[in-house]
Design a protein around this nucleic acid. Structure first.
Lengths: 129, 129, 129, 129
DNA sequence: GTGGTCTAGACCACA
DNA sequence: GTGGTCTAGACCACA
């Protein structure tokens, strides 16, 4: 339900899955220490090879978004510790995009206005979709 | 000179090359109808197989950034016609980044302030157009 | 079976292949989300280098006729979205041909009669959609 | 004046030139036995290598659109003899285009109506601009 | 000289 | 197994 696969997406399946789960954890949809769906369950729900799910979960563990307990499953980690790094990444990617504005004749005012328009809307409902 | 390859970059070589050339054409560093370096010349300069350069040039051609004439060379196209599409793409990518702000506790004011700081700096030295 | 190469044809092999596949997808012979023959399989069937097949598939992908997933294969895309553009292209090519009629002493009546003769025949056995 | 080169056109230069001259002869703009511009003159006017012009003229000769007299130049041939073959080619190309109509949901009525619209307009002024 | 096509064969990540 | 990237090297028509 929470995870949808887009086969036309060029990213590998495991990355689509891990990215989606990361966001769910970041947003608190899956709370700290909450049990993630089992590999087998997710595998069947998405009709995707268990090895692929397993790989996605491995990424989550490695990136600090989850921790696994043998025989029990994977649990959402406390992502608050990752916040500074994620913020830094956010601003870095923002800068990469902004770099191209001048060549497009897009000025500071254009961007800030756009930002206000987009983010104001989001702030009211918040939950990112 | 104008093109540098980053072997740590995970993107394929041909994409790094085409992206770099696209930006040079967008910014007018390579002007309309100006001759691009030949496939062979760039191949030797970067020590990269001609086929890979050829692939990069193929991307430029199909994306409307250049036109190639067998026996003559590859020339920068008139990219002004692409401006609307490129602006649209810019805002789309911007939105993709901004989506993640709320979950990071980053508000409209944070972003607009950052945008002003980054873009103001660029505007002063701006030699791009 | 579905694809035949004409070595007398002056068009490059990869173009013959991509054109043929495009038409099969347009006509619904290869349905939406149906798996195309693998690069290697087609390569062997046609006795053509895999790189050439790969190039043909690259064209299909970028033109919106298929989407490829590494590790899974290439699938026919939903081409209904391309219909308006394809219709426009059809009329454009038709116009290019018709332009030459006056210089050949061929009038409106000649053309329309010919069109009726050719297309009526097709409509009866039409199994394409 | 009569010939314009489009460097973005994918066709080789010599083919663009020979095609254009063929049409001028077909339409009678260059009449039977009329002297074509000299290789040297056309070369300078178009800023194109004389060898390329020479090649274009070779095609005209080979295809029966002109005849060359050593020391005098190239003259437009009597193309009336070519009419049947050109008509056949016209209908053949027309058929190639029409083949695709059914898959696009374009019927006989659509095509004939379009043909009438396009050709009626042309019939009044005729000379193909 | 130029771009473009093709083969042969290696290697990669992904499923 | 799958698609995708890259190298090496040959060959072509065109300018």
């Amino acid at each position: 339900m929470l995870i949808e696969i887009d086969f036309r997406d060029k990213r590998p399946l495991y990355e689509q899955i891990s990215d989606r789960l990361k966001r769910l954890i970041e947003q608190g949809v899956i709370g700290k220490d909450e049990l993630l769906p089992s590999v087998r369950a997710l595998s069947m729900e998405l009709s995707i090879n268990p090895n692929t799910i397993q790989k996605a979960y491995g990424v989550l563990d490695r990136d600090g978004y989850s921790y696994s307990v043998a025989g029990k499953g994977s649990f959402a980690a406390d992502v608050s510790a990752l916040l500074p790094a994620r913020r830094e990444a956010f601003y870095h990617e923002l800068d990469e995009v902004l770099k191209r504005a001048p060549a497009l004749g897009i000025g500071v005012a254009d961007v800030t206005e756009h930002v206000r328009g987009v983010m104001k809307k989001g702030e009211q409902y918040d939950t990112d979709h």
